[in-house]
C-alpha cells in the first residue's frame, strides 16, 4: 500500500478536464459517492489553505497595511533560521505529543482493564472515567488552572503541601509547566483511549479467556498473553487519532500557561496564534501554518507506514 505524498495538494480536484461530465458518468458508483464529501473538503479546507500559502509569501502586519508587499521566502527564512521560539515550539510539540499519546494509551489501558472486570458499580466507574473526555477543554483548562494547580488556592498544591514529606509546595504551572500541560492532556485523552481499548477487550472471545484460566493462568499472564496482543491494532488506532488531535492542541495552553513561562509550553499551534493573531503578523503566521502542515504530513505518513508494517508483521 502506498500513502501518496501528494495527498494534500488539490490534485484530487484535477478531474476538471473537458470530459468531466463524461468521465463522471462512467465512474464506478463508489467514486461518485465519495465526490460530495471530497468536493466539500476541498472547497472548505483548501480555499483558506491556498490563501494561507499566498499570505505566507507576503510581508503583512495587519496593523501596518502600508508596508504590505511580496516577501518571497523571507517569512520561512526567518522562522527556520533565526527564530528561537520556532525551534522551542517544535521541540515542545514533539514532547507534548509523544508523551501525552503514550501516557494516554498506558493510562487508558489501565482504565479499560479496570472496568473490564465485574465488580459492584462497574457502570458508574466507567461513566466517571470517560467524563474528562466529554468536558469542554476550555472549561477543564480553567478549572485545572484556577482550582487545582493554582499555587495559592489549588487543591493539588494543597494536597502535596499537607501530605508529602517536606511539605513541597511547588508552583505547578510555573515550575513544572510541561508536566502540568501533559497531565491535563493525559487526563482528557486517556478516557478516549479507554473507549477504544475497552471495545477491543470486549471482543476477545470468552472461550479463550476461560481456557487460559482453566490452565491456571494468573490475571497478569492472561493480560500479557491474551489481552495485550489482541489490543495492538486498537492501540495503533488510538495512537494515530490521538496524535492527529494532540499535535494541534491549543485550548489548555492558551488558557493555562499562555505558552510560558518563557517558551516552556509554547507548541506550534500556540506559536502560530501568537504570530498571526496576537502580533497581527499575517505573513509569519501563515508561513508557520504551512510549515506545520508539511511537518504533519511527513510525520503522520511515516507513522501510518510504520504502523502498517507492524500490522503486517503480526
Amino acid at each position: 500500500m502506498a500513502v501518496a505524498d501528494r495527498s494534500l495538494s488539490p490534485a484530487y480536484g484535477r478531474a476538471a478536464r473537458p470530459s468531466l461530465f463524461h468521465r463522471l458518468w462512467h465512474q464506478p458508483v463508489g467514486r461518485l459517492l465519495i465526490l460530495p464529501a471530497l468536493i466539500y473538503a476541498i472547497i472548505v479546507t483548501q480555499a483558506p489553505f491556498l490563501l494561507t500559502i499566498y499570505y505566507s509569501f507576503q510581508r503583512w502586519n495587519l496593523q501596518r497595511p502600508s508596508t504590505r508587499g511580496f516577501a518571497g521566502l523571507d517569512n520561512y527564512k526567518f522562522l527556520l533560521t533565526r527564530d528561537h521560539a520556532f525551534r522551542d515550539a517544535l521541540l515542545n510539540t514533539a514532547i507534548f505529543t509523544i508523551s501525552a499519546v503514550l501516557l494516554s494509551l498506558l493510562v487508558g489501558l489501565f482504565y479499560a482493564e479496570l472496568v473490564n472486570h465485574r465488580f459492584p458499580g462497574r457502570g458508574v466507574v466507567r461513566t466517571l472515567l470517560i467524563t474528562p473526555f466529554l468536558v469542554m477543554p476550555a472549561a477543564a483548562a480553567l478549572t485545572w488552572k484556577n482550582m487545582l494547580l493554582n499555587p495559592t488556592y489549588g487543591v493539588v498544591d494543597w494536597l502535596t503541601r499537607t501530605t508529602l514529606p517536606g511539605n513541597p509546595s511547588p508552583n505547578w504551572l510555573g515550575v513544572y509547566p510541561k508536566e502540568s500541560i501533559i497531565l491535563v492532556l493525559v487526563w482528557r485523552w486517556a478516557p478516549f483511549m479507554m473507549l477504544i481499548l475497552l471495545a477491543g477487550m470486549q471482543s476477545i472471545s470468552e472461550e479463550v479467556r476461560e481456557a487460559a484460566r482453566v490452565d491456571g493462568a494468573t490475571a497478569w499472564q492472561e493480560f500479557r498473553s491474551i489481552t495485550l496482543p489482541h489490543l495492538s491494532r486498537f492501540m495503533q488506532l488510538g495512537g494515530l487519532l490521538g496524535t492527529v488531535y494532540i499535535v494541534q492542541d491549543f485550548d489548555p495552553i492558551y488558557l493555562m500557561t499562555k505558552g510560558g513561562p518563557g517558551t516552556a509550553t509554547t507548541n506550534l499551534s500556540y506559536l502560530t496564534y501568537r504570530k498571526a493573531v496576537e502580533a497581527s503578523n499575517v505573513g509569519q503566521g501563515a508561513a508557520l501554518g504551512v510549515i506545520v502542515v508539511i511537518l504533519s504530513i511527513i510525520v503522520i505518513t511515516l507513522l501510518i507506514r510504520w504502523l502498517d508494517r507492524m500490522m503486517r508483521g503480526t
Binding site: 502506498a2 500513502v3 464506478p28 467514486r31 491549543f250 493573531v277
Partner: peptide, 28 residues
Amino acid sequence: LRPTKKWKDVLFFFISTRFLPASGVIVP
C-alpha cells in the same frame, strides 16, 4: 467499496485537512 486503488490516499487526504492549525488559518 474500494472503488480506486488510491482509496487510502483519499482517506489520508481527509485526515490531512486537519493538519493546518486553526490559529494558522484564522486570519485567512
